[in-house]
């Protein structure tokens, strides 16, 4: 029971970190960035390469993955999304899908479709609490989640750039009139989201150590669900949504059916959305005629 709970929170923390990327980008650019899951995969491969081919120490490997993903996020934003700022949301969505295909197939060409086994980067011994054993990976994941959450909250509420981000997400036009560089702020959001994706990639691959070009796809969709679950656009919402989703998934696997666990996760999402159409912490949008 306790083991399942800890595993659920640990998996949920990974979802939460990915969901933060979705939710921040959605909040600011009002776009569903379907390529986010593949940025996670690239982050995983970047860490994998540095750690196994070049024998870098884990900390540097993670740092390298973050740098790669941040750069990738900025490049994707500049090349593919920025020209479409004024386009319909469906056009941006399809472009994001194109980027997702592009990343997956590039990875397929570079690293082939054979699964790579991810090296163990987290060398912390597991702890035994009562009857439950908590793995080092789970501890690090949960801690990373808490640290990121606190850092992001402080960043968005205290710093000037963070405040600018919130302003842009509320009203782009007004923010521009107040002298905020909207384009730069959006790029920054993408950079932060992609950097977080790199961390999520490393944590995900540490917990499930097989790395394939499609590794990011399913966690990406689930994290997106988590973001919607908590109310898309809301940072604490992404956190709560992610952790709850992880717990539901692990408990569904343990007590109901392994094969149907995904169906259970999505069914819970649907029930939540039917009861609360904008997610757990989402603000209801008032329509004006």
């Amino acid at each position: 029971m306790l083991t399942n709970l800890i595993n659920g929170i640990s998996l949920g923390s990974v979802y939460a970190i990915i969901a933060l990327g979705y939710t921040m980008v959605y909040g600011i650019a009002k776009m569903l960035n379907f390529a986010h899951g593949d940025v996670i995969m690239i982050g995983g491969y970047a860490a994998f390469c540095t750690a196994t081919y070049w024998n870098w120490p884990p900390a540097f490997a993670v740092l390298f993955a973050i740098v790669v993903c941040t750069a990738l996020g900025i490049i994707i934003e500049k090349l593919a999304y920025k020209p479409l700022r004024e386009a319909t949301s469906l056009a941006v969505l399809i472009t994001a899908i194109g980027v997702s295909y592009f990343l997956q197939n590039s990875a397929l060409l570079i690293w082939s479709s054979n699964p790579k086994s991810f090296p163990n980067m987290i060398s912390i011994p597991s702890i035994t609490v009562g009857s439950a054993q908590i793995s080092g990976t789970a501890i690090v994941t949960i801690l990373a989640n808490i640290v990121i959450m606190i850092a992001l909250t402080i960043f968005t509420s205290k710093t000037k750039v963070g405040k600018a981000m919130r302003a842009v997400s509320e009203d782009k036009g007004a923010a521009q009139l107040m002298g905020i560089n909207v384009n730069q702020t959006i790029s920054l959001t993408f950079a932060i989201g992609s950097g977080l994706a790199a961390i999520a990639g490393v944590l995900l691959c540490s917990a499930y150590p097989t790395l394939m070009p499609t590794t990011g796809a399913m966690p990406g969709i689930k994290a997106f669900t988590a973001a919607v679950f908590g109310g898309i656009g809301s940072i604490p919402g992404a956190m709560i949504g992610g952790v709850l989703l992880g717990i539901i998934e692990i408990f569904g696997k343990a007590y109901i059916s392994t094969q149907l666990s995904d169906a259970i996760v999505f069914a819970v999402l649907i029930i939540v959305l039917i009861v609360k159409p904008t997610g757990l912490l989402g603000k209801p949008v008032r329509e004006k005629v």
């Binding site: 959605y26 569903l32 949301s89 969709i221 997106f224 669900t225 919607v228 898309i232 094969q259 149907l260 995904d262 169906a263 999505f266 069914a267 999402l269 649907i270 959305l273 039917i274 159409p277 904008t278 997610g279």
Partner: peptide
């Protein structure tokens, strides 16, 4: 169909996955 916009999109996605899973 009670939902709107992106929320509707994500729920149809969820239903598609549930159907596949079943």
């Amino acid at each position: 169909l009670r939902l709107r916009g992106d929320y509707l999109a994500i729920v149809t996605l969820a239903f598609g996955e549930i159907i596949k899973n079943i």
